[in-house]
Structures are given as C-alpha cells and as structure tokens.
C-alpha cells in the first residue's frame, strides 16, 4: 500500500538522520568533551561554555516568557471583556506566532543589543528568545484555559468566589497540564534555535564558561553551526557531538515537563 510505504520512508529518513548523527559524534565522545572549552583545534575542542550558555539561555527564556505569557493568557481569557481590544490583541499574537525566528534576531539586535545597550550577551539572547517564544506560549495557554469547562467557573462564582479565587482555585489548576505541555514544546523549539543568536552576534570560540547573563553570548546551536562550517574532517565529529549534546538537553527539558505535568494532574484530579 502506497501510504504504508510513505510512512515507512518517513520513519527511515528520521532513523538515518539519528544514526548518522550518533555515528559521526562517536569519535568525539569522551568526558572531557563535555567540559572542555571551545578551541580552534578540533582535538581539544569541547562544549563546556556552549553547554553552560544554552542552560543560561533556557533558564532566562523560561523565566521571562512563561510568567508573562501565562499572565497574558489569563488576562485575555478571564479578565478582558470580549470585543474590540481582545480581537486586536489576539489577532496580533496569532500573526506574530508565524514570524521566522531569524526576524526576531534582527529585531533583537536593534532592540536589545543596540537599543538597550546590552551588547551581544546571554541576557540579550534570553530576551530575544523569550520574545520569540511568547506568542506560542500565549496561544497554547489560552487554548488550555478555554478548554476548562464553563460549569467549573460558574459553580465557583455561585458559591461566592471572587474572580481571583476562581482563577487561582479552579481555572489554573485545571488548565495547568495543558499550559505546561504547550509551553514546553515552545521552549524546546526556542532553545534549539541558532538563527536569532547568530544574528545577535554569538561567539563561536569561547574559552571560559559563562557565569552570569552579562557574559558573551554562546550556545550549543550556534556552536554546532560554527563547527559545521569548518571543512576539516575532525570538526565534523565535534559538530555532531555538540548536536547530540543539544538533543540531550532538549530531551531532559521534555522529561522535566512530563514530570511536572504528571504532578499537576495528580493535584487537580
């Protein structure tokens, strides 16, 4: 059957990619690779600074975009009366959800790196990635909030609960699993982005691990890119190694989200 063949081909393409990546990364794999600083010599190159940079960026992005995004979703769904303003805001959010990440990089360069004078730092990277994740976090959180049955709210209101009590006690607990799942998907996609960081001016050879958000911008995705563009054979292995490390970071983020989600479901059930 043709459709079955197509499905098998899709699965095969994915497997090929995974196998090629791991096979190429194999020779780079040792413990030093994880902690060593980046280097111009492939043998001595490690992903220590890039890994630390990506962890910083992930933390900053979640810290900025999650509260603001969920807060906005709650306001739009529970507080703002439906009508003109609501339509304008949700239209704008929906439109910006489809804008390519590299465009956010250009805007971030003008706004954060130059406009606010942050320079090409992890902080500027975190702000840009947060802006990139924001529309998706808002859209998925709104969908999760809207899926909470009306009756739950009405029952609480009829018992004399105030709006905040309804939001805090009923809506958020019921919507939390959906909010976490949707936001986490957005954050995983954002943390894997290289394009906006490249535009902001990420460094490709960094000799020390960043200790604060004011340190220079470095990350695993941009490190994979920088090493991929080098023609020497041995850099292909470290690029693949950095790619595998990036995939592992994203996998851990996904596992954390799953655990959090299971906890939340346990509480609200």
């Amino acid at each position: 059957m043709a459709c079955g063949v197509a499905a098998a081909m899709v699965a095969a393409a994915f497997l090929t990619m995974a196998v090629v990546l791991v096979a190429k990364a194999w020779s780079a794999a040792d413990l030093g690779f994880l902690f060593d600083p980046s280097s111009r010599v492939a043998d001595r190159a490690g992903i220590g600074p890039a890994l630390a940079g990506t962890l910083w960026l992930a933390a900053l992005t979640v810290a900025f975009a999650f509260p603001v995004g969920v807060g906005t979703a709650v306001y739009l769904e529970e507080y703002l009366p439906p009508g003109g303003v609501a339509v304008v805001v949700s239209g704008a959010v929906a439109n910006l959800a489809g804008v390519p990440s590299v465009v956010y990089g250009v805007a971030g360069l003008a706004l954060f790196v130059r406009g606010m004078g942050m320079g090409p730092t992890l902080l500027a990277g975190g702000c840009t990635l947060a802006a990139l994740a924001l529309p998706t976090v808002i859209v998925t959180s709104r969908a999760a909030i809207r899926a909470v049955p009306r009756g739950l709210r009405e029952a609480a209101y009829s018992l004399g609960a105030t709006r905040w009590q309804v939001v805090r006690g009923q809506v958020l607990p019921a919507a939390a699993p959906g909010i976490v799942t949707g936001s986490c998907a957005a954050f995983i996609r954002t943390v894997g982005e290289a394009a906006p960081l490249l535009v902001l001016g990420a460094v490709s050879v960094m000799t020390f691990a960043p200790r604060s958000p004011a340190d220079p911008l470095t990350s695993l995705p941009t490190q994979v890119f920088a090493w991929s563009t080098r023609s020497q054979q041995d850099f292909a292995a470290v690029a693949a190694g950095a790619g595998v490390a990036l995939l592992l970071v994203l996998l851990v983020m996904n596992l954390v989200a799953r655990v959090v989600r299971r906890r939340l479901q346990g509480v609200s059930a």
């Binding site: 894997g192 995705p221 941009t222 990036l246």
Partner: peptide
C-alpha cells in the same frame, strides 16, 4: 522529528 533543532538538520 519536530523537536530536532534545524541546525542539526542542516549539519545532516
């Protein structure tokens, strides 16, 4: 596949 960063696909 949806979670694979595009830079990794570019490398591939």
């Amino acid at each position: 596949l949806a979670a694979v960063p595009t830079v990794v696909l570019g490398y591939f």
